[in-house]
Design a protein around this nucleic acid. Structure first.
Lengths: 346, 346
DNA sequence: TTGTACGCGTTATCAT
DNA sequence: ATGATAACGCGTACAA
């Protein structure tokens, strides 16, 4: 690979002039500039950006920590990140961490060792916590699933309000026996959505029944499994609210296998509005999240932090939308009858 | 950030000794080594890998060009890449290119400018072609959709054989009127799958009807659209073979909306075996591809090229598997009747 | 075993 | 407007 010295030699100028001709052309006479450009062409010169980065101390790389790229929602978020990063001339280093703390810490080292300038975390975990960072401003943004006291800018969605909106929708259809398939127990995201669910129940004067909460892990399979468990209850729920669309689609299949019709026999709701949600049978009622916007915003916030364009630690809350499709409907008329099962007390 | 000089000062040794103590500890006396390690700790020293990379001329980054990360199949491939890259201590730079040649060329510049050591391309396009690269061995691997005369190692699947296998399956069920929803026209992948489809037809002595080939673009929507078109034909196909699962799931919905039952009225087959394929209604018959293995193999091949462990240009062909689920079934008995429509020749 | 000194490719500072 | 040179942080050849 030819270097700036070779170009200088060909153009019969100094390396400084070559650098200037390329970086601040206005400082160089037209004549010299053309000579330089010709030499650049002749030498097939490409500035070694590794050297530029080394000298400037900025890698112009951003690490993205994503629990699983194979998750459709995250894939959309990454799409948005990619778009924003490209516009601002940064590159994205992908870290597929399988939600493993140690893997995430390892990726955070990329920042510590100057291979990346900052990091975007999509999970509620601070990989820098153990890694004594000297910088005052943590070069990090937390998106989607957000730390409770995040030491960095945050971009999120009012998960509590969204879950409340969905639950209110189900309540308005007459459902009183609403199950919820949750995400991992410790996740703040799960906690907030459960809280919103309770909010709606409380507001409607419906008793909260903890046994209607079923754990899941955001996969199709877990939605199927959790639903199977719910169907073993003596009293079947009339609606299932899943914390993401994958689990809802898993639920739909399980219900079908048990001969239940959606929404006639039971309603199902999801969360995220992934592309498959509109193509399930029936199409899924869900909460639409602006996934790409999450990504774009996170990247822009991070770059703002890095370029010191930010004074405070912003908390951006993106809007959600309740998307009504065919998977939710009025509760069955006959249902209230079974609501008080004929149990003989012994 | 503290540097190697500060550590040297603290340990009261030279910078060379510090470097050695960390890189080749066996060359340094135990006593000195401990002194150095203590100083490292005290200074909170982290080697600046940007400097290391600059000096070595190797970025240890790999660019991945993916048409759309939002595609479930590609997301799985990337997962596999990530895994292999991590193991071999490389990082992945993600390039979401929307199948735009110029965007891909821009990403290839990352290699030209030493920001990345090599590139993995998932599409049949050589971004280096216009970018006179001086290196003899192109630092590139082509995976999934492969260039016809790829100037680099290749990892692919026998798409022709796979499409033939699926078509044979449909033929064996009695289907003679099999439509195909294709990918983009120019793609070699599409071409190979169509060829396999024809192979099977020819072998069975079934006439090939070009009008049964319908263009799509691998999205759910395009599968839906293409199916709607197919249903307008005077003579409805008895089976639809889609070139990926998303389009097949789109097809399923369209058929349902037209009141057709799958597989009783019409069979549907996909390609890829994404997770959603097992959860559609009915579950999708499809060709399973080892997506993660694609990613792992591509990364390992590329690193082998970079580290000159490769003499030839290997062509790795991964296995596929015909996965039979509920979306394909025997052709309707009544169908052959309409097979010879009562057309009056004028 | 350890230290000195150079070089990687670029940009910035200071002269001219 | 242009040139000479130092500096970035590190690894290593060579010298001691």
């Amino acid at each position: 690979m030819s270097n700036i010295r070779e170009v200088a030699r060909l153009a019969e100028v100094s390396v400084a002039t070559v650098s200037r001709a390329l970086q601040q052309p206005e400082l160089v006479s037209v004549k010299t500039r053309n000579k330089v450009l010709a030499a650049v062409k002749q030498a097939g010169y490409q500035p070694n950006l590794l050297a530029v980065k080394f000298r400037s101390g900025k890698s112009h790389n951003l690490v993205v920590l994503v629990p699983t790229v194979a998750n459709v929602f995250f894939a959309r978020v990454i799409s948005g990140m990619q778009e924003a990063a490209q516009q601002r001339r940064y590159s994205l280093l992908l870290g597929n961490t399988m939600a493993d703390d140690n893997a995430e810490i390892a990726y955070a080292r990329l920042v510590q060792t100057s291979q990346a300038d900052g990091l975007i975390q999509l999970r509620a975990f601070d990989p820098f916590a153990t890694l004594d960072m000297t910088t005052e401003r943590l070069p990090m943004v937390n998106a989607c699933e957000v730390l409770d006291k995040a030491p960095c800018p945050v971009v999120t969605l009012d998960n509590r309000a969204a879950a409340m909106a969905m639950t209110e929708h189900l309540l308005s259809l007459g459902h009183r026996n609403i199950a919820m398939i949750k995400g991992p127990a410790r996740s703040p995201l799960t906690r907030d959505r459960v809280a919103g669910y309770r909010d709606a129940l409380d507001a409607a004067g419906v008793a909260f029944d903890e046994t209607l909460l079923c754990p899941g892990n955001f996969t199709l399979q877990s939605g199927h499994q959790a639903t199977a468990q719910l169907l073993q209850r003596k009293q079947r729920p009339t609606a299932i609210f899943c914390e993401n669309d994958e689990m809802a689609i898993g639920a739909l299949q399980c219900l079908k296998q048990h001969g239940l019709k959606v929404p006639e026999d039971i309603s199902v709701a999801g969360f995220d509005d992934i592309s498959f949600a509109a193509f399930s049978d029936p199409p899924l009622t869900t909460i639409a999240q602006p996934a790409e916007e999450f990504g774009r915003t996170a990247v822009n916030l991070l770059i703002d932090v890095l370029e010191q364009k930010l004074t405070l630690l912003p908390k951006v809350i993106l809007p959600f939308e309740l998307v009504l499709r065919g998977s939710t409907g009025p509760v069955k008329m006959s249902e209230p009858a079974t609501d008080t099962p004929a149990v003989h007390l012994t």
